[in-house]
Computed example of a mutant assay.
Amino acid sequence: MSFGSVFIAMEESMSDQLIDQALVEIPGYRKLPLTKQQLAQRVLITVHAFGMDLDEEEPHFYRTHLEEGAYQRAMQGLPIDDFEQLVLLWHRRGIEMLMAKFEHPAEHVALLRQTLKVIQSGLAGLYRGYDRARIGQLDRQQAILSELALPIIPVYKHILAVPLIGVIDSSRAQQMIERLLDEITTLKAQMVILDLTGVPLIDTGVAHHLLKTVHSARLLGARVIIVGIRGEIAQTMVHLGIDLSEITTRANLQAGVEYALACTGFAIRPL
């Protein structure tokens, strides 16, 4: 008989024993909104994947299963500790039960060699699954932060306002161009107001990206107005030789909105 077939023959009784032990030794499993039968079913699937790999030259069933399980748990905000403890618990218990089925020392050696190979493969999958989820969550958080750091506000029909706040480096400036061009296309914007009131400084690289934004928006049929240029930034631009003669500027956001409305045939009037 193969190691895998012997192991799989024991999987149901092993799953029940493991759940009983896990509910005692791992507090996190007592808090899960699952019945004991549901937990046992999940463990049974895991044990079965392990048994299949015991007969594989290159284990992969168990690794894939643990990776997906770890990924799903991490995406649900569940800690790695409880899952890791359960896996290690049943590794120990499973090896003990399997070793008892074979008596010859040579079989013990071969069994240990194969089980260690499967365990190493499975643990690699488990940690890879958590890493995948963590990286995915970081990417989503970064995307959210990028949107918060660069709000694009529809002011009125076909008019967008982009208040820039904080230091703008080349990376953030490139993100601004990409997001803004997407919004111009989606909302069919005709006027874009770039508000620099909250920008403490501008260097040559950022100024280049601002000019690039203006020209790119123009190619999409939108006109850019730059507002809120403070005195020190104006001096820096002059010192750097940045030519804004072809770009419409206004003193502040209010003036920029009034100009944009006038250009699109609207105006703000008292009631």
Rank of each mutant, 00 (worst) to 15 (best):
A149P: 08
L150I: 08
P151Q: 02
P151F: 02
P151G: 03
P151I: 04
I152S: 07
I152V: 08
I152G: 02
I152T: 06
I153E: 02
I153F: 05
I153N: 06
P154D: 00
P154K: 04
P154Y: 04
P154F: 07
V155S: 11
V155G: 12
Y156N: 13
Y156K: 13
Y156C: 14
K157Q: 14
K157G: 13
H158A: 15
I159C: 02
L160I: 00
L160H: 01
L160E: 00
L160V: 04
L160A: 04
L160M: 02
A161E: 03
A161N: 09
A161V: 00
A161F: 07
A161W: 05
V162H: 02
V162W: 03
V162K: 09
V162Y: 01
V162T: 05
V162C: 01
V162N: 05
V162M: 02
P163C: 01
P163A: 01
P163I: 06
P163N: 08
L164F: 00
L164A: 07
L164K: 11
I165P: 11
I165W: 00
V167R: 14
V167Y: 13
V167D: 12
V167F: 11
V167E: 11
V167I: 14
V167P: 10
V167Q: 14
V167M: 13
I168Y: 02
I168H: 07
I168L: 14
I168E: 06
I168M: 06
D169Y: 05
D169L: 03
D169I: 06
D169F: 00
D169C: 09
S170Q: 13
S170Y: 04
S170P: 10
S170T: 11
S170R: 12
S170N: 12
S171I: 13
S171K: 15
S171M: 14
S171G: 13
S171D: 14
R172G: 04
A173K: 13
A173P: 11
Q174T: 09
Q174S: 13
Q174G: 14
Q175P: 12
Q175C: 07
Q175T: 13
M176I: 06
M176E: 05
M176Y: 03
M176L: 15
M176K: 11
I177E: 07
I177H: 09
I177D: 02
I177W: 00
E178G: 12
E178W: 01
E178Y: 12
R179Y: 03
R179H: 09
R179W: 05
R179C: 07
L181S: 07
L181P: 12
L181R: 10
D182K: 15
D182H: 15
E183C: 09
E183K: 14
E183R: 15
I184E: 00
I184D: 01
I184Y: 03
I184T: 06
I184N: 07
T185L: 05
T185V: 10
T185S: 15
T185D: 08
T186H: 14
T186C: 11
T186Y: 12
T186R: 14
T186E: 13
T186P: 11
T186W: 11
